[in-house]
Write a protein that binds this DNA or RNA. Structure first.
Lengths: 185, 185
DNA sequence: GTCTATACAGTGATAGAC
DNA sequence: GTCTATCACTGTATAGAC
């Protein structure tokens, strides 16, 4: 079981690079260094089970490293939101790395993993909104600002990859960060 | 030649739904109602040429309906920016429709169509920045605001599809619209 | 558990009848 | 120009030797 988990990061990178439809089993074998037999031994459900394992892994990482710190934000302390921007900037490598949930959302893969993808973004928004409320924003304002900020991160990834310019990612993130740290109206 | 162009919108819709790697020639035949022979007669280069034709078609549409109106914005007239938001909201069907250039940017297709994708977003940003300058923004401020706004549109598409909620698209767009129409600091 | 061998459906693409 | 038939190949998935 822990053997299986050890190969999940390599699968994640392969899916990020090639997409779900574009990643063949041969690709995934090369990425993990395993033969087809071994891969199917760990993931009898094939590609779909591999992608599900990857999404679960990403979910766990974001929950521990992004969502829970946001939830833990104490009243009047705005540092948690800034820490989130630092974490996603590092994680997405300034836009060089793709958000798999976001990429899947744009394609047919969305139907396969609808609940997982929906839950990921919903919890991201909800935890960010909680941190914003702790920082003094009202209920509805916090939710809307959180939606906008998560969209900004996703858009920053798309745009910086399209222009092949990590600087664009940083620009968008910094604007979003400044906006959420700005004094309340 | 006009025969060929007539089938491009159907190909566009197929690529939007299935992605580039996910759209098989059989899929594209079904979408256009043509046999393989006919498709290859129009597009000897296969899928790649079909996608290139689709991107060129989208490029022409955006140039005529979005980029040029932005360029035509006269000094002191902020209506052009608002018209852009209306146009993209209609075009992307409140996030139900995907931006093909954005979706391609996230995957390996980016390498195949790098110049086209880069040019599309670069001209979107540049024309929006021109309209913002016409509305009174400074050079650098206009560029940064344009980058942020285009990213917001892309992020809105990703997020609204992920949550299967067109309302999210509208929320993000309205925030972006309000921000760009706000009085200058 | 790991690999090799294999099954067989589906792929992109071409040739040729009409 | 359009289709059908067919090509060689790659796809996912399984079976079985080790």
């Amino acid at each position: 079981m822990t053997q299986r988990a050890a190969h999940v990061p390599a699968l994640a990178e392969a899916f990020r690079e090639h997409g779900f439809a574009g990643a063949s089993v041969a690709t995934l074998c090369a990425a993990t260094g395993l033969g087809k037999g071994s891969l199917y031994n760990f993931f009898p459900g094939g590609k779909e089970e591999m992608a599900a394992a990857v999404l679960a892994d990403l979910d766990a990482w974001f929950t521990a490293c992004v969502f829970e710190p946001l939830r833990a934000a104490r009243a009047g302390d705005p540092a948690a939101v800034g820490a989130m921007f630092d974490a996603v900037t590092a994680y997405f490598r300034s836009g060089r790395r793709v958000c798999l949930q976001g990429a899947f959302a744009l394609g047919r893969e969305r139907d396969l993993f609808a609940a997982t993808i929906d839950g990921y973004f919903e919890r991201w928004i909800a935890s960010l909104a909680a941190a914003l409320r702790a920082a003094g924003h009202g209920e509805q304002a916090a939710r809307l600002a959180a939606v906008e900020a998560v969209a900004a991160v996703q858009g920053a990834i798309v745009l910086s990859r399209a222009l092949a310019d990590p600087e664009v990612f940083l620009q968008v993130i910094e604007r979003s960060r400044a906006r959420l740290s700005a004094p309340l109206a």
